[in-house]
Amino acid sequence: MILVERVTKRFGDYVALDDVSLSVPDGSLTALLGPSGSGKSTLLRIIGGLESPDVGSVTIHGEDQTSVAPQRRGIGFVFQHYAAFKHMTVRDNVAFGLAVRKRPKAEIASRVDELLEIVGLAGYQTRYPSQLSGGQRQRMALARALAVEPRVLLLDEPFGALDAKVRADLREWLRKLHDEVHVTTLLVTHDQEEAMSIADQIAVMDHSRIEQVGTPRELYDRPETPFVMRFLGPVTQLGDALVRPHDIALSVEPRAGSFEAQVARVVHLGFEVRTELVLGDGQELAVQLTRGEADELELAVGDIVHVRSTVLPRALATRAPEADALSA
C-alpha cells in the first residue's frame, strides 16, 4: 500500500500540492486524474522520489520513504516520453536495473527474455529504441520498470505521447498486464475515459488538491463536487442542478417538477439522439435520448416539451460554491 499523508509542495510561489493525502491499496490500479497543472504528476514524482515534499510523508508498504532516494524505493517509473536509453539495445534497456544490481548474467538474460515475452517484444532484443514505434518503446519502458520487480509501479501519462488508436490498444493491454502481474500501480492521466476504463480506483485532482477518491462508478454516479461531475462526463444544467444529459426525461405532458422547453435542434447519431432544448428562461439544455425514445416523442424543431431529471436532483451549486468558482 502507498500512503501519502498531508503532502505540500511548492515551486517558488506556486503551490503544486496543497495538503494532499491519498492511499493506494495493495494490488490495485489507481488513476490520478486531473487537468493539466492540477498537481497529479508532482504527486506521482514525490511518491517516486523524483521530487521531495516540503511537508508531509510518503509511506510504501509501511516503511517511511519520504527522504529515501529513488534508487532505494523499490519503484518502477514509466515516463510519458519513454525515457528510453537511446544508446542501448532493447535488451540492455530492460536489463539495466538488474545490471546495476549486479545480478548474475544468466539470470538477467532469462528475466529479460521473459519480460519481453510478456510485453510482446520477443525478438526485438537487439533493436535500438529508435527502431521501435512509440507504442513499442513504451512497452519496452514498462518491461524495464517491471524487471526489477518493483513494489509499486508509477506511470506518468504513459500513453500521452501516442496516437488515439495505439493509446486505446495499450490501455487494454496494460489492464490485462495488471491482472496478470498484480503490482500496485498508480497511473497519472488527464483522460477521464482512460481512467474510467482501466482503473479500480480514481483520485480526481484539481488545483493542487484531491477532489474525490472512489471507484469509477462512484465518481460518475455520486460526484461530490461540480468539478468532479463535469470532469467525469458531460453535464447540462437544469434549474439550479447539474444533470447528465442521459438523466433527463422528456414528456409531452407536464409532470411533477418538470420544466417547459422548446426543441431547438435534433441530431441523430445512430442509436443516440442528441437534442438541444431552450428552457423558458432562455437557458440551453442538452439531452441524450435513445432512438426509441426520440421516435416515440416524434420530436421536431419548435415543439414544446416538458423535461425533468430522472435522478435525485443534487443541488451541487450550493454545496461547494468556492470550488465551483475555481473550476469555472
Binding site: 515551486f11 523524483l50 521530487e51
Partner: peptide, 12 residues
C-alpha cells in the same frame, strides 16, 4: 520543472 526536479535530487 525538470531543473527543479534535479535540484531536489542533487540535494541528496
Amino acid at each position: 520543472m525538470s531543473a527543479l526536479a534535479v535540484t531536489a535530487r542533487s540535494a541528496r
